[in-house]
């Protein structure tokens, strides 16, 4: 499995946000957007990467919405874990 990332702006409600697209072997698996603390809706949480859309093993058909990831590496680690788990089935 080869994971790669691409960056592009993503349209969300309220404007566009910095986006992080995660691909597995060239196929789109997850789209994260960078949000600030106020957007998390939780006063105790600082901003970070929010799973805007997931596909396949990262999608909401089989995966609960994860919490906001404080740093990009956490988001990538979560995506990798979801993809690896799916690969074992």
């Amino acid at each position: 499995m080869t994971m790669e990332t691409r960056r592009m702006e993503v349209l969300v409600d309220g404007g566009s946000r910095q986006g992080l697209l995660v691909l597995e072997d060239g196929k789109l698996a997850a789209v994260f957007v960078l949000i600030d603390a106020a957007e998390t809706g939780k006063p105790t949480v600082s901003g970070g990467w929010y799973l805007e859309a997931g596909f396949g093993p990262c999608g909401q058909l089989i995966s609960a919405q994860p919490d906001v990831f404080p740093v990009e590496d956490d988001a990538l680690r979560w995506t990798e874990q979801r993809l690896n788990r799916a690969g074992k089935h």
């Binding site: 969300v12 309220g14 949000i35 957007e39 998390t40 809706g41 939780k42 929010y50 906001v68």
Partner: peptide, 25 residues
């Protein structure tokens, strides 16, 4: 709280925040 509202609406608190912004704007 927005977290509780998310638990009511079946949304993440991030989406609750956006929905409220939309209703406000």
């Amino acid at each position: 709280t927005q977290v509780e509202l998310g638990d009511v609406l079946g949304l993440s608190s991030v989406h609750v925040n956006r929905v409220l912004q939309e209703l406000r704007s």
